[in-house]
Design a protein around this nucleic acid. Structure first.
Lengths: 121, 121
DNA sequence: ACATTATTTGCGCTATCGCGTAATTACATG
DNA sequence: CATGTAATTACGCGATAGCGCAAATAATGT
């Protein structure tokens, strides 16, 4: 896993349903590797590797508590991804506005078509 | 590319700097495959395949205008990804609040440490 | 019909991903 | 120190990703 830019690492980490489910679980609070593995039909090594991907993306951190290593959700990469999305939020609100305008124009045209027997008042 | 759930397809599509750059370009308005290829040191077939990934994720659509196929940014998958993120937005605002509280507590403790030569007033 | 421009498809290559099994490290406890 | 529990690393496998090159398709202009 060649070092890549943070956004790429974040999106790559999120591009897997198992990993997203793990993050969802971690919103409930920290959990050990075993606990995180429990809902899945996957072996522990596989789960461990998924967690490593999340960790390297900065999406989780691992503490050490006795034999277990509880994982905690880390928000920084999500904030960054969110900031990236924001760039498009503006775009798509204007897009929606335009759609809205178009829609209104269409409805107006339809209304006109419905009662065409009128002058411009 | 086995059919997968939309979020996975979206995040996978976003997990590539080239594809993200293409989306950024498309916020400026539609562009042809050639135009989208121009900034990159990539062959056209490669660019075409990147665009196919974006299209299959629903992030762009292709029109046909004469010989060229202008691509347009489509927002639906971004809205969906945004909705997924929102689930965490709430989490990380509470997280920040907690951090904030902790920080204030720490600073208060420091202030106390700075002037310990005082009774409880 | 023929040449031109725009884009995609087929093929082969190397690299990475996701998975399991087996072996290994790191702690804790009898 | 031996045993058990938690987690990781090593190794190999089949599938997929990303790339270029060459060939094919699509639409247009001559």
């Amino acid at each position: 896993m060649q070092t890549q830019d943070p956004l790429t690492a974040t999106f790559a980490a999120l591009a897997d349903p198992t990993r997203r489910a793990m993050l969802a679980r971690l919103t409930q609070g920290p959990a050990t590797v075993n606990e995180l593995a429990e809902p899945f039909a996957l072996t522990l090594p596989t789960v461990s590797r998924h967690l490593k991907v999340l960790e390297q993306a900065g999406l989780i951190s691992k503490q050490r508590s006795a034999q277990s290593r509880p994982c905690t959700l880390e928000i920084a990469p999500l904030v960054e991804a969110d900031a990236w999305m924001a760039q498009y939020r503006e775009f798509f609100t204007t897009r929606f506005d335009r759609l809205d305008t178009q829609l209104k124009a269409m409805m107006a045209a339809r209304a006109d078509a419905a009662k065409p027997s009128r002058g411009d008042q």
